[in-house]
Design a protein around this nucleic acid. Structure first.
Lengths: 184, 184
DNA sequence: TGCCAATGTGACATGATGTCGCACTTGTCA
DNA sequence: TGACAAGTGCGACATCATGTCACATTGGCA
């Protein structure tokens, strides 16, 4: 948890991601674009910063030590409902995307995403039904990933319970969760 | 476009999906659960039904002849903002999921999904709480089997094409098809 | 404090998968 | 009719994923 605060005006943005390097790079990119950036690498630190000075924007990762970034989205919104939050994760799933938007995130991006994309997402307006529909169905691997994520969310991220409900071995589930999701 | 309307009370639900068989099966399942179901297989028909009598619930597919189901979500909400809409699609993506929720859908599911899941989604987060929590989700194997069968059908049983679309090796697909009639 | 459930991780036998090759069929087209 | 492209079924084999057992650690609860 560190903070880079400059004296003058510029929209404030809070970065929350346990990947320190990633944070730093993104911090630079945003600073260069005129944002006043603060960073946190886990939930507690993020909350402390936000309580002290609620940011106008926030970029939060889903996979963090301890609890899910979804919880953070909820808390940030509770603290200051005008904060525009973008979820950014390398472990994206439809289940968490739906949840994130319901909790009030303005957008949901998958890593890798460049700074321009992120800025655009932060400022994006309401939805407008123009998103094209995929032309190919999900691959089996992807479908499995989505299903697992869905059940996992229903089980409040309890891996043991999820494994039992899916009729799969806990060890196997763990291994699948560690891997990054396949595209498509 | 047909409609199954019964005289008495029961929450009304509009099914919109160009897959006629799928619609009929789901219609039966919902009717059995006490819903008053009407069906449409493309947007115009759906809108006509909705204008005439806005439903309390709606289940809409994304991939339909003509325009995207997302447009329909928008229009249904414009017609009657209390309609609780669930998007259900075999061509899911994170982008459309985010868009659907922003447009006001209450949930976003990927096919295959069973009737219980759909009902649960329709009611999710509804005022009077009561989230009965799904008992046993489909096993991963079963899900995979259903998905394969669906795509195989779309590919007119062409195993090579299906394998490519599913991102799996043809040999593997063959083996899977030989083995399972699959339980549970 | 001891118990219980959940988690993260290592190790290992076994089964599933990706990959290549080949023979055979079918439909198209010059 | 022959050449050709695409699909199918199946054998073989190296590699990877899975199920299974074990153990240490953590956090809640009585």
């Amino acid at each position: 948890m560190s903070s880079v605060t400059e004296a003058d005006a510029g929209p404030s943005v809070l970065l929350v991601d346990d990947d320190v390097i990633f944070c730093q790079v993104l911090c630079q990119a945003l600073t260069r674009r005129g944002y006043v950036v603060s960073m946190a690498h886990h939930m507690d630190a993020a909350l402390r910063l936000a309580e002290q000075d609620p940011p106008e924007y926030a970029v939060v990762d889903l996979k963090m030590p301890g609890s899910s970034g979804l919880v953070l989205v909820e808390k940030l919104r509770a603290l200051e409902s005008h904060t525009r939050i973008v979820v950014l994760t390398g472990y994206a799933s439809i289940a968490t995307a739906v949840e994130a938007i319901k909790l009030g995130a303005v957008h949901y991006l998958t890593k890798p995403a460049d700074a321009d994309e992120i800025v655009q997402a932060l400022r994006s307006g309401e939805g407008d039904a123009t998103t094209p529909v995929a032309e190919t169905p999900l691959s089996v691997d992807r479908l499995e990933w989505e299903h697992i994520q869905k059940v996992l969310l229903e089980c409040e991220s309890n891996i043991s319970v999820t494994a039992r409900r899916l009729g799969m071995h806990r060890r196997t589930l763990q291994r699948k969760l560690q891997k990054r999701p396949v595209r498509r």
